[in-house]
Design a protein around this nucleic acid. Structure first.
Length: 254
DNA sequence: GTTCTAGAAC
DNA sequence: GTTCTAGAAC
């Protein structure tokens, strides 16, 4: 029953693209136009678009217990595995070295929002041990380099950290500017995941691993996501997301 | 993680 | 009546 994950073999020179991952996306939204097409930009949006239920090829799914090809393909196509695919795509890679790769978050929650991922397959913080200490430090250093290289002249403040309970598989360090000026930031969960203890500072993770050899995540994390909306700069409570977003403007750097 | 939308909140 | 949130997605 052990799920065998494929090794992340990466060719540094020229990565062969895998065609056929793309699916039709004929769906149209009728209602609001949420011009989401900013950060992810050009072709960034083109893959990983595996919408459940929109698989035109197979309408009939008779048996539910097939452990072979179909199941494996499905697990890789599942949305929670999206980072594993994106990080391999040269078009998505903003930076890479022997240990890590950086991509832009597909749905950035601020003007700058990168993800730093190790090539090594580490499913989550739960799997982190002292053996990963230097790797974690390197991820942090690379995150800081992203800031100086791509936002050095901006006055934006940044935070580096991990979600206590990430939705996406594969350990990833968030590097995010603190303007939270993005159309992709839409709900309370988005806000609280970056502005409560749900967001664990990279430095804290490093120190935890250094001293205890692992990362302990406190209880009650899911509840944090439901807390009232509070401004991270002045602590003011805001009654709704639209009002929070309007409020945030006053803290933007000039 | 996102989309979609019913119905709560205003 | 419109805005906004929150839960399902087979």
């Amino acid at each position: 029953m052990v799920n065998e994950l494929y090794p992340y073999i990466v060719e540094f020179e020229e990565e062969a693209e895998s065609p056929g991952l793309e699916t039709h996306r004929k769906r149209k939204r009728s209602g609001n136009n949420d011009s989401i097409e900013r950060g992810a930009a050009q072709e960034a949006d083109s893959h990983t678009g595996l919408e459940p239920g929109s698989d035109p090829g197979q309408c009939s799914v008779p048996s539910k217990k097939e452990k072979d090809a179909s199941t494996k393909k499905e697990s890789l196509g599942h949305w929670s595995q999206g980072l594993k695919i994106s990080m391999q795509d040269p078009k998505m890679q903003v930076y890479k070295d022997e240990q890590v790769v950086v991509i832009k978050d597909k749905y950035p929650k601020a003007r700058h929002h990168w993800l730093v991922l190790p090539w090594a397959s580490i499913s989550s913080l739960k799997a982190v041990t002292r053996e990963h200490l230097e790797l974690l430090k390197h991820m942090h250093t690379v995150g800081e380099k992203m800031i100086t290289d791509f936002a050095g002249s901006s006055k934006l403040r940044f935070r580096l950290g991990y979600h206590a309970i990430p939705s996406m598989s594969h350990v990833h360090l968030h590097v995010i500017s603190q303007d939270f000026d993005s159309p992709c930031l839409k709900n309370k969960k988005h806000w609280n995941s970056f502005n409560t203890e749900y967001f664990i500072e990279s430095q804290a993770v490093i120190e935890m691993v250094q001293t205890t050899g692992r990362v302990s995540v406190r209880d009650g994390m899911p509840e944090l996501l439901k807390l009232p909306l509070r401004c991270h700069e002045c602590q003011q409570l805001l009654p709704s997301i639209p009002q929070l977003k309007e409020h945030l403007r006053r803290h933007w750097p000039k």
